[in-house]
Design a protein around this nucleic acid. Structure first.
Length: 492
RNA sequence: GGCAUCGUGGCCGAGUGGCUAGGCGCAGCUCUGCAAAAGCUUGUACAGCGGUUCGAAUCCGCUCGAUGCCUCCA
């Protein structure tokens, strides 16, 4: 029997503002769409947090036995810059500045994106569609919205008529905004606007002569607007009503609000059952953003090459750091917090190593089945990974006690413990053991084993000067020796 | 200015009406040649002020502070 039949998953739905029991449209199947990156520069750590959060969600859904179709788009058509840039889009601008083709920009940063996410051990989505690959569908959708009367054309551009839509729909329900308030608070923009109302948004923009990314359309040459691609691609691959739509908190308004409006304008019903929003990663208490320069690149954290860091951290440590916070909470990054996370992570992984060699006994003092259910309850409660991590540390404690002969566990319980522990650490949290780029671990481990042997010989001869020299020299290299009852082990 | 969210012990971070989350650090003890590691033990915190309640970190109000969105942003 599939696990999802035994476990009751609740998710926090941004639309209702409440935790709701998760019930997919089609039993056993889940359709999930997550807004992906705009590939105009290197993916930064804040971006990564969102995708890591949804990777956790994807992994847990799969672990529960759901067949998940996970769609995460690549925005390669760019979004418009602000008015000062005369509607130039980010990718086009980057291409112009670097004197290359827009698609070279897209290619370069798509590869970077994939590389980094792979380091963080993210599972690839089922489908990763691109905006430029769905221009035809976007044009068709615009035609449909025009036909329904919720859009109008001006000078080769097409805009969504928010005021008209709001007459018999509710614009702003996701972000808790009221159109009247928005109109009342509109800032006076000096631009000679083609829009009927400032709240209207572009479905199609006419391309100026210098604009390099352009496609033919019934309204002349142009390019699609901000919010259209997600509506088109989510509906195409997941249907008019699908289960989960995710993305960063900063996309809630206006992006997701506009998606709802577009879909409701076309299909006359809500497109999404559960809206999930991942919160921001902050640096120095401020949101990480490319535009403000307050950001940290994954590469910098892996190399330690950034003034705020005292050392390098592996992707898995960073991932563990993120798993210690709930995905809907703002998480502040600091060197101190990473250092603490690293220690905890190593302790967790050490316990995992102990598992196979754990002695078994006639009885168990640790209630493994109750523990396992607490782990599920943590994840069932809106993917509460911090609680799961706390539970894992409870198991760490038990494992260490058994290892030291202070507690016992039966063979059956040990097996359940090992299976569940590994499943939660590897499959659900997506952590992995110290994969180190560019290091031949077999050579290193063999060398350290030899040094341990020499040190133990020195200790047997009470030549502590020699033994301590080996220990301290290795410590200086970041290799820590651990003397236990059954010999010496090491971590690095 | 408008709309939200949040303020938890040295740090990070769960909890959301009564039942000490957890991690890191600190201190003590056990172990050890000495350490480290590991184990055990110890920490009664919830921005401030009022209110509701038998009882509030948890609900309500106000104040202060922080952040996000309102313009592209994960």
């Amino acid at each position: 029997m599939a696990l999802y039949k035994e476990q009751t998953l609740k998710v926090y739905n941004s639309l209702s503002g409440e935790k709701e029991v998760f019930e997919p449209v089609h039993e056993g199947h889940v359709g999930m769409y997550v807004c992906g990156p705009t590939v105009y520069s290197n993916v930064h750590l804040g971006n990564c947090r969102t995708f890591i959060s949804f990777d956790l969600i994807f992994r847990y859904l799969r672990h529960l036995g759901y067949k998940v179709r996970y769609v995460r788009n690549i925005t390669d058509a760019g979004h418009l810059e602000d008015d000062a840039d005369h509607g130039e889009d980010k990718i086009a601008k980057k291409a112009r500045l670097e004197k290359i083709e827009p698609m070279e920009v897209v290619q370069r940063y798509t590869i970077d994106f994939h590389n980094i996410l792979q380091k963080f051990n993210l599972l690839p989505p089922s489908i990763e569609p691109t905006a430029t690959g769905h221009i035809v569908e976007q044009i068709e959708l615009i035609k449909e919205i025009l036909l329904k009367g919720f859009a109008y054309e001006t000078n080769g551009s097409v805009y969504f008529d928010v005021v008209k839509f709001n007459e018999d729909h509710t614009y702003g329900k996701l972000s808790g905004r009221k159109l009247e308030d928005m109109i009342a608070n509109t800032r006076e923009l000096s631009s000679q606007d083609e829009k009927r109302n400032p709240q209207d948004f572009a479905l199609w923009k006419k391309a100026e002569p210098q604009h390099i990314m352009r496609w033919p359309s019934p309204w002349g040459e142009g390019f699609p607007g901000w919010h259209l691609e997600c509506t088109v691609m989510s509906t195409k691959y997941l249907g008019e009503t699908f289960d989960i739509h995710g993305g960063g908190m900063d996309l809630k308004f206006p992006h997701h609000e506009c998606e709802i409006a577009q879909a409701e304008a076309c299909y006359e019903h809500a497109p999404v059952r559960y809206w999930l929003h991942a919160n921001m990663l902050t640096l120095n208490g401020k949101k990480m953003a490319k535009s403000t320069g307050n950001n940290l690149l994954p590469g910098e954290i892996f190399s330690g090459n950034n003034p705020i860091l005292s050392k390098a951290y592996t992707p898995s440590v960073v991932r563990f750091f993120m798993m210690q916070a709930h995905y809907t909470s703002i998480l502040d990054l600091s060197d101190e917090a990473l250092l603490a996370a690293e220690k905890g992570y190593l302790r967790l992984m050490d316990a995992l190593d102990q598992l196979p060699t754990l002695p078994t006994g006639k009885s168990s003092e640790f209630d493994v089945k109750a523990w396992r259910q607490r782990c599920y309850e943590a994840m069932n409660d809106d993917f509460n990974s911090p609680i799961l991590v706390a539970q894992l540390f409870e198991a760490v404690k038990a494992i260490n006690l058994v290892r030291d002969g202070k507690q016992t566990v039966t063979a059956g319980d040990k097996q359940v413990l090992a299976e569940s522990f590994e499943a939660f650490v590897y499959d659900v949290l997506g952590l992995e053991k110290g994969r180190r780029d560019g290091v031949d671990t077999r050579k290193l481990e063999g060398t350290v084993e030899l040094l341990i042997e020499m040190r133990n010989q020195a200790r047997a001869n009470k030549d502590y000067a020699a033994s301590d020299r080996i220990r301290d020299a290795l410590a200086g290299l970041g290799i820590q020796l651990k003397d236990g009852k059954d010999g010496t082990t090491f971590t690095y």
